[in-house]
Amino acid sequence: MDIPEILDFLKRLAANNNRLWFQEHKVEYQRVQKSFEALLAAVIARVAVFDPSVAHVQPSDCTFRIYRDTRFSSDKSPYKNHIGGYINAKGKKSNHCGYYLHLEPGNCMLAGGSWCMPSDMLRAVRRSVCDNIDEYRSIVEDPAFKKYFPVVGEEHLKTIPKGFPKDFPYPQYIRCKDYTVSCPIPDTFFEDPAFLDKIADVFAQLKRFADFTNFTIDDFE
């Protein structure tokens, strides 16, 4: 795997996001794709040590297409400026919480969670948090977890959701519109010979959160 090559390609793609340039560099992209799949294979092997449910997952199952859907976007750039892979025991389109690796120059991250949940599923996860608040707090307030994931959720309601007690003492935990977490990493992260061990450390903390949310989510899957 050659991560500097991947990041360099993505940087040049961002500056030349058009079909002609991409076609002229298609062979290079194919090499980058293989390199990213090799990275995913190595990460899957590390994650499977503490989460055997992903042992069967193949890199090709995880990788997202680089082609953008521009039908409903004012940005008509045909390609993404990043490459990502979602290691998920139930498939990359599942609401089941998995492990996401995102490479983008200046915006790399390790993340996971459940985005765009149906309203009944989101309500059930919030209810689980509310009913098991001590267990939930033991995960998300643990310094070992917060070191990588200081905030849960990308978007939050301004008030307590309907149907939940207005005096709930930890409103920040049920106002989430999504139950996701992310850990930004610098491009230089991959220069460390032990970067795979560090990825495993981050995702091992994510698994604690995933186990909690998946207990409810998997009833819907």
Rank of each mutant, 00 (worst) to 15 (best):
F190Y: 10
R71S: 09
R65C: 11
V47F: 04
L13Y: 03
G112F: 03
W115M: 09
Y29S: 07
Y148W: 10
R68W: 07
Q23W: 13
S35P: 05
L20I: 03
K207L: 14
A48V: 12
A45N: 12
Q58N: 12
R127Y: 02
T188K: 02
K207Q: 15
A204Q: 08
I199K: 00
T63K: 11
V47M: 12
E221K: 08
D197T: 07
V125E: 02
F145A: 04
H96Y: 09
E154L: 14
C130A: 15
L196R: 03
R127M: 10
L39W: 05
Y148E: 08
N132R: 05
S60D: 14
H102L: 08
K93G: 12
L110Y: 08
V129C: 00
A89L: 08
H56P: 13
A89W: 00
C183W: 04
F72A: 08
Y67C: 04
E104H: 09
L157E: 09
E24F: 07
Y136R: 03
L101C: 07
R19I: 09
E5N: 01
S60M: 10
E28D: 14
I139H: 06
N18F: 03
L110G: 02
N107A: 15
K207G: 07
R19H: 07
F72R: 13
I6S: 00
K76D: 12
H156Y: 11
L103P: 08
V32H: 01
I87L: 02
Y179A: 06
G85I: 04
V27R: 03
P118I: 09
C97T: 13
I3T: 08
I44L: 12
R71T: 15
K166W: 00
F36V: 06
L20S: 11
N81G: 15
Y99G: 01
V181G: 06
L101F: 06
K166Y: 00
C108S: 11
F64Y: 15
I44R: 09
R46Y: 02
T216E: 06
L206N: 12
